[in-house]
Design a protein around this nucleic acid. Structure first.
Lengths: 342, 342
DNA sequence: GTGAAAGCGCTAACAT
DNA sequence: ATGTTAGCGCTTTCAC
C-alpha cells in the first residue's frame, strides 16, 4: 500500500506553500497560471488525491445529499433516484441513499445516520406510518434543508414536491364518467399516505361534481401489490351490480386486478373500464393497454435535487417555498375507451 | 443556528479529559462504567452528534461503500440496490450511489469521485463500452477492494458476482427444444457485455448439443428496450420460414416483442414459443405469462455488500476469490408450453 | 482508569 | 500573487 500524497508533498515538490497548492487545486483566481500548471502537473504525477474529510472538516460542508426512500425497488422510486443522481452528480454532490422499508422505526434510524454523516441536505419520501416528525427536528434546528417528495407531510420549515394528486385522480375519474361509467370502484392504498388519501378525494369530488353518489362500499383499500390487485378483483366480482369501471391508485396493482377480472370472463373495457396511476412501463404492454396518470418520477428527482441545491447555495430559507407541484396528465389508452375516440 | 457540540464541551461538562469522552463514546472497555454513563447522559443532554469527518480523517476509514451502476431505473438494478442498501445499512455502512449512464466516460468520472470520497470499497456493474479498466487501478494500488457484479470483466485483483449466464441460457434454450422447437431465434443485447455474450453462448451450445444448426441469421442484436423488441418482431415476421420460438435476453424486450408478434396475428406459444430473462414482475402479468430465467437481483446486492464487508473487515485479499456464482433457475410459464405440462 | 499532546490534511484569516 | 499561522474535531500513542 502506497503512502498517501498530501498538498504538503506537492508544495515541497513545486517549491511553494501548501496554501498556494490548496488554492491552485481549487482553481482560485489569485494564483499565477504558470504556478497553477506546475502544481497540477506535479499533483497528477505524484498520484495525489484530495482528502475530502479534511476539506469537509475544515469547510463544515460535505457536498453530500441524503435520501431516505421507503423502498428502492419500485419503478417509480428508482426513476426518482435516477433523476436525483443525475442532477446531484452534475452539481458535484454525492448521494447517500437509504431505505426506510416503509417503517417509521427505520426512518428514524436512517435520519440519525444522515444527521451524523452531516449531509448538507435531506430528501425524504415518508414511511407510511410516520405521523410524528420529531426525528427531523435536528435538521430543522441546524438549518439543514429537508425536502419531502411524493409521500409528504406538512411542515412549516420544509418544502414538498408533489403532483396534484387530487386533480389527477379527479381527471381520471371524470374521464371514466365521460366514457359513460356510472358505477366506479376505486382501489386505494394506505389512506394514511397523503398520496392515496388525495387520490381518493379527487375520485370523490369528480363523482359529486357529476351528480353521482359517492359510496364507501365502492372504495377498496389494499396493499397496492400483485396480491392486492387479485384480492380487489375478487371483491369486485362479488359486487351486485358489477361496477362499470375501476380506478386504481397504482399501475402494478391495476394490471393484476385487470388480469384477474379478465380471467373471470369480463371484457375490458367493454364490461369494466380501467384506469391506473403512475404510467409504469408495464401499462403499455398489457392487453388492453392501460389508461393511467403520468407521474413524472425522473423529473421529480431532478427537481428535488435542484431545489435543494438552490436552497443550499443561496442559503435562502427553505420554509419560504411551501410546495412545488409538477405537471401530471392523464394518458388515455385502450382500457378505458368505451366510446370511439374523438 | 446552534453551536455544534464537541467532545471538548462534554469533557468540560463532565469534568474529564476529551480522551476519556472519546473512549467512552466508542465504548472502550477501559473506562469506568459510571464515568461512561455520566458522559452518555451529558452528551445526549447537550445534543452532541459525533463528527464523522474528524473521525474519518483520523482513522482513515469512511464506512462508506461506493456503487457505480449503469442506470438506476431498471427493475433489476433497483432490486440489486435495494439488497445492497439493506445489508450495508445493517452493517453500519453508507452507500454512495452513482450512475455511469452506460458510458465509460461517466464511469471514469464517477470512479474518480468515489476514489476521492475515499470509499472503503467499490461495487461496480460496468458500462457497456468499458474495455480498459485503468480507471480502477488507483483502487487496486491502494488496496481498496473492488467487486464487480452482473456486468463484469476479468481482473486478477477483484472478485465478480454473477449468475451462470451460459448455463441459464442453455437451460432456457433446451427447454424450448424439449417443447419441440427447432427453429429458435435469439434476441441479444450488446455483445460486448459479458452477460449477453454468455447467454448467446448458452443458446448456441444447447443447439449444438441437440444436433440443431446454429445460424447467425437467427441471432438478432438490439437495444433490449421497448423499441428493440418491436424492431426484432418486425425482423422475425419477415423470416422464411417463421421461427417456432424466440429466446430473448431480457424480459422487458421480450414482452414487447411478444406483443408485436401477437398483434401481427401469431399465437404464443402455438406459433411461436417465447422465453425471456430476469423474472421481471412484468412477466407474470402479460398474456400469456412469460417463461423466463429468474435472476436474483436482490440477493446479488446482498451478497455483493456482504462479501465486500468481509474483505474489508478481515483484510483478506480480495483477489483470492475469483468469482461468486449465484443460483438462477428457469421459471416455466405459459409462453413456452407447446406440449401439455407433465 | 485517566490525561497531555500531537497530528490526520485541509483551508481561511491575516499578513506581506 | 504568495506565505504564515491556526484550527476544524477526533483518536491515539505514551505516560502516569
Amino acid at each position: 500500500m502506497e503512502k498517501e500524497i498530501t498538498i504538503y508533498d506537492i508544495a515541497k515538490g513545486v517549491g511553494v506553500s501548501p496554501t498556494t497548492v490548496s488554492r491552485a487545486l481549487n482553481d482560485h483566481p489569485a494564483v499565477n497560471k504558470k504556478t497553477k500548471q506546475r502544481i497540477y502537473d506535479t499533483a497528477s504525477q505524484m498520484g495525489y488525491r484530495s482528502n475530502l474529510f479534511a476539506s469537509n472538516l475544515r469547510r463544515q460542508r460535505t457536498h453530500t445529499i441524503g435520501v431516505i426512500v421507503p423502498l428502492l425497488n419500485s419503478n417509480f422510486q428508482s426513476s426518482v433516484m435516477a433523476g436525483m443522481e443525475k442532477v446531484a452528480n452534475e452539481a458535484g454532490y454525492n448521494l447517500i441513499i437509504s431505505q426506510s422499508m416503509g417503517t417509521t422505526l427505520k426512518e428514524i434510524a436512517n435520519a440519525k445516520i444522515m444527521f451524523n454523516s452531516r449531509v448538507d441536505g435531506l430528501l425524504v419520501s415518508l414511511a407510511q406510518d410516520t405521523e410524528d416528525m420529531t426525528h427531523f427536528e435536528p435538521f430543522f434546528k441546524k438549518g439543514i434543508p429537508v425536502l419531502f417528495y411524493d409521500r409528504v407531510a406538512e411542515h412549516r420549515q420544509s418544502t414538498s414536491i408533489i403532483i396534484d394528486n387530487v386533480q389527477a385522480a379527479y381527471n381520471a375519474t371524470r374521464h371514466l364518467i365521460e366514457q359513460g361509467c356510472r358505477n366506479i370502484v376505486h382501489i386505494s392504498g394506505n389512506l394514511k399516505i397523503n398520496v392515496y388519501a388525495n387520490r381518493l378525494k379527487g375520485y370523490k369530488y369528480a363523482l359529486i361534481d357529476h351528480d353521482l353518489p359517492f359510496r364507501e362500499s365502492l372504495v377498496l383499500t389494499h396493499d397496492l401489490t400483485e396480491e392486492g390487485g387479485i384480492k380487489a378483483a375478487a371483491q369486485i366480482l362479488r359486487m351486485e351490480p358489477l361496477p362499470d369501471a375501476v380506478f386504481v391508485s397504482n399501475d402494478f396493482c391495476a394490471v393484476n386486478c385487470m388480469k384477474a377480472l379478465k380471467e373471470a370472463g369480463l371484457s375490458i373495457p367493454g364490461d369494466v373500464a380501467m384506469v391506473g396511476f403512475n404510467n409504469d412501463p408495464i401499462t403499455r404492454v398489457v392487453e388492453p393497454t392501460l389508461t393511467t396518470v403520468n407521474y413524472p418520477g425522473y423529473e421529480m428527482g431532478e427537481v428535488a435535487v435542484r431545489s435543494l441545491i438552490n436552497y443550499m447555495d443561496s442559503l435562502s430559507d427553505i420554509s419560504s417555498t411551501n410546495t412545488i407541484t409538477l405537471r401530471s396528465e392523464l394518458v388515455v389508452r385502450e382500457s378505458s375507451l368505451k366510446k370511439a375516440r374523438g
